[in-house]
C-alpha cells in the first residue's frame, strides 16, 4: 500500500488539460477553430475587395466583381492564413494561461476539484484519489500506463482518466514505489507477448 500526499496547482492542471486537448491533433480544439475562422477570412478578403471596388466606384458597372484571381489576392489570403496559423500555435500558451486563471479563480471559491491537496492511495487492487470535496477510485487493473513527462508522473486509468503526480511532491523512493506499483499492475500485460 502506497500513500502519497500531493498538492495540485492550477498550472499543473492547465498544462495537463492543454496536453490532453492537443492529443492526436496538430492544435487543440480552440486552435482548429482559429484556423477554420482564418480560412474563412482569407477567402472573404479578396471577395470583399471586389465588392468594394464595385460598390464604391460605380455600382452600374459590375466588371470589378468578375476580376479573375490575381497575385494580390494570394498575398492577402496567405497573410491572413499565416496569422491564423500563428495564433493557433500560440493558442497552446494562451489556452494554458486562461485555464490556469480560471482554475485559480474557482479554487479560491472552493469550487474546483482539480486544485488543492490530494491524497493518493495505491493498494494491491485499488487506487484511490481523494481531495477535500471529491474522491475517485479505480480498479488497479484499469491502469493502462504510466507516463513521465518532465516534472510529472502520470498514471492513466484509461486514456481520459489521468492521475497526475507532481514530482516536486514525491521523494525519489516515492517515485520508485509508484513505478514498481505500476509495473506490478501492468506486469501480466508485459509477460504476454
Amino acid at each position: 500500500m502506497i500513500a502519497l500526499s500531493i498538492n495540485w496547482h492550477a498550472e499543473d492542471q492547465a498544462w495537463l488539460l492543454v496536453a490532453q486537448n492537443r492529443r492526436g491533433l496538430p492544435f487543440g480544439i480552440g486552435g482548429s477553430q482559429l484556423v477554420a475562422g482564418g480560412a474563412l477570412l482569407a477567402l472573404s478578403a479578396p471577395m470583399a475587395g471586389r465588392v468594394a471596388s464595385w460598390a464604391a466606384v460605380n455600382p452600374h458597372d459590375p466588371t470589378p466583381l468578375l476580376r479573375p484571381p490575381a497575385w494580390d489576392d494570394a498575398v492577402v489570403a496567405a497573410a491572413i492564413l499565416g496569422a491564423a496559423l500563428l495564433l493557433a500555435l500560440l493558442s497552446r500558451w494562451t489556452e494554458r494561461l486562461g485555464l490556469r486563471t480560471m482554475l485559480e479563480m474557482r479554487s479560491e471559491e472552493g469550487r474546483e476539484p482539480l486544485v488543492g491537496p490530494v491524497s493518493v492511495t495505491l493498494g494491491p487492487d485499488r487506487a484511490t484519489i481523494r481531495g477535500a470535496t471529491w474522491e475517485a477510485s479505480y480498479d488497479a487493473a484499469l491502469l493502462t500506463g504510466i507516463e513521465e513527462p518532465p516534472g510529472y508522473l502520470i498514471l492513466r486509468f484509461g486514456a481520459a482518466r489521468p492521475v497526475m503526480l507532481p514530482r516536486r511532491d514525491l521523494t525519489e523512493p516515492d517515485a520508485a514505489a509508484v513505478r514498481d506499483w505500476a509495473a506490478g499492475v501492468l506486469g501480466h500485460d508485459d509477460a504476454a507477448p
Binding site: Q20, N21, R23, G24, L25, I29, S32, Q33, A36, Y138, D139, L142, T144, F157, G158, A159, A160, R161
Partner: peptide, 25 residues
C-alpha cells in the same frame, strides 16, 4: 467546426483499449 473537432478529438482519445475496456471499466 467546433463540433467536428471535439468529436474527432474525443474519438481518438477515448477509443477503447486493445482489450476493448470502456471508460471506467
Amino acid at each position: 467546426v467546433r463540433r467536428w473537432a471535439s468529436v474527432a478529438h474525443a474519438r481518438r482519445v477515448l477509443r477503447p483499449g486493445p482489450d476493448g475496456v470502456p471508460p471506467d471499466g
